[in-house]
């Protein structure tokens, strides 16, 4: 079954890193929330996240789902962007020997997955070393 609608709803975040900032306490949220988990505020301004940050933690997937067999082994990580937002994603174009906490990261637009041979192509962000 196609996931077009679900994919389409996430386009602002997946493509453009659109997030929200609480107008009361300044906390940033990605993806956007209805209620600020910091102060309970309900007013937010739309912001675009910085595309650079640093690696907080990582792992290497050596037995991945079948649709990722072309990319196995691959690294996954949690990155903290400048501004404080933390996000999870795949780390592409990295030599595993270079993986370390604090590694400077930038975000690139990549294909995340394909819905089989005939389904939609799903795009979004991945991390690559910023060097």
């Amino acid at each position: 079954m196609s996931t077009s609608a679900k994919y389409w709803r996430g386009i602002p975040q997946r493509y453009r890193l659109e997030a929200e900032k609480c107008t009361d306490c300044g906390a940033q949220f990605f993806p956007p929330r209805v209620v600020c988990s910091g102060c309970g505020g309900r007013e937010f301004e739309e912001i675009k996240l910085d595309d650079r940050g640093k690696l907080l933690t990582y792992t290497v997937i050596r037995v991945g789902p079948s649709e990722f067999c072309e990319q196995t082994p691959y690294a996954m990580g949690i990155v903290e962007l400048e501004g404080g937002v933390r996000m999870t994603g795949q780390i592409a174009d990295v030599d595993f020997d270079d993986l370390e906490v604090g590694l400077p990261i930038k975000i690139e637009f990549r294909k995340i997955r394909e819905e089989g041979e005939a389904g939609i192509l799903c795009y979004g962000y991945k991390f690559v070393p910023d060097k």
Partner: peptide, 16 residues
Amino acid sequence: PSPDQDVITMSVEATK
């Protein structure tokens, strides 16, 4: 190209 790179992804990065 890597498996996650195609005309669309490269176009976006060049355009950035």
